[in-house]
Amino acid sequence: MNLILKVWRQKSAHDRGRFVTYEAKGIGAEMSFLEMLDVVNEELVGRGEEPIAFEHDCREGICGACGFMINGVAHGPERGTTVCQLHMRSFRDGARLTIEPWRARAFPVVKDLIVDRDAFDRIIQAGGFISAPTGSATDANAILVPKEDSDRAFDAAACIGCGACVAACPNASAMLFTASKVTHLGLLPQGQPERYDRVRDMVAAMDREMFGSCTNIGECAAVCPKGISLYFISRMNRDLLTASFKGRERFKALTAAGPAA
């Protein structure tokens, strides 16, 4: 099959960027979308033109490195699929496809389709963990976790950190990403001691990174390649609300004890 690609080209963060049109010829239906771009790039290199830069690594839909918009949809038309696992049989011959990077203030473009997603790492740094220094653990079966909680925690933990949720959201909010980690850890007994500090700190970090607010549109969950549910956002909001009361109690305790505490 043959396709017309309108691709965002931007040399660096300082360049203005623009769309450039390319033809992709002789594409097989069994190829993945990224293999189609490989073919285009080989041709560009052959002509001495700079290949289209895009991020990718595992090509199995799990590392979260790849991702861009295809005709305005994050990761393209197939549900629950990253662009590396999207196959050309999903497109018809002669299709015109607009390919552009994630657009969000918190994700500045590095080059072409590559964006900087460091903000996600900083949200995790703010509290997306259980403080369990190496060597301090008890026997694994000493901690009982109801299967239902464990399964649901896994559903949340399946997030690959690709950033599609942010790109799809009209507000460029990172709620689904943050909520998935808050819920994963907050559902487990091991995560209880830090549960409310975690949600407060991670949401604060999210705001610092200039992600937008959530207005319950649900685009994020619709494009999430791992099918992470909006339920987790409501669960995080509940924890955040509880945290605000707990926080006040702690604040009172601190002020009652005097500044030295």
């Binding site: 008890t138 694994a140 464990s150 399964d151 925690a153 994963h184 487990l188």
Partner: peptide
């Protein structure tokens, strides 16, 4: 043991 303590959802 370590991984369970960290919250790995086995």
């Amino acid at each position: 043991d370590q991984c369970v303590a960290q919250g790995v959802p086995f």
